[in-house]
């Protein structure tokens, strides 16, 4: 581990990491990765998010889909837990709620493989600090 010793270090590190994350998110030709984020706060885990995450890790590998599955915090949709976010290369991320193994299977088969949306989508209903420039 290289320590961050100065402001310049931190800025370089940020730039590098951002490229790394961007690359993964925007998926340039070399990396056509599918990204799955599972909301794993206490509430999500209590409603079965761990099982869903394991399902995605196992099944995406079995079905030969190049994907990263990561955990994240609460997305705020407690009424629809477990929730996941799927980001296909070059597309806006889509959040799905009420995801159990059956729904996960449907998401892999229809959305991840064919880009076909399935019911259970939760539209983004908030603004982020990035697009708020009042």
């Amino acid at each position: 581990m290289v320590k961050v010793k100065s402001l310049a270090d931190l800025q370089n590190l940020k730039a590098n990491l951002q490229t790394k994350v961007d690359l993964r998110e925007k998926g340039d030709s070399a990396e056509r990765l599918v990204q799955v984020r599972v909301a794993m706060a206490t509430c999500g885990i209590a409603s079965g998010a761990k099982k869903v995450m394991e399902f995605f890790i196992d099944e995406l590998e079995k079905r030969n889909i190049d994907a990263v599955v990561t955990q994240t915090g609460c997305m705020g949709y407690c009424y629809a837990e477990p929730t996941i976010e799927v980001k296909l290369p070059n597309q806006d991320p889509v959040v799905f709620g009420y995801v159990d193994s059956k729904k996960a299977d449907e998401i892999i088969e229809k959305y991840i493989k064919n880009g076909e949306l399935v019911p259970g989508i939760i539209p983004v209903n908030y603004e982020t600090i990035d697009n708020n420039n009042q």
Binding site: R37, T72, G73, C74, M75, G76, I129
Partner: peptide
């Protein structure tokens, strides 16, 4: 909540 549900904590 800017990073909640976005980053891997």
């Amino acid at each position: 909540l800017r990073n909640c549900g976005v980053i891997n904590p």
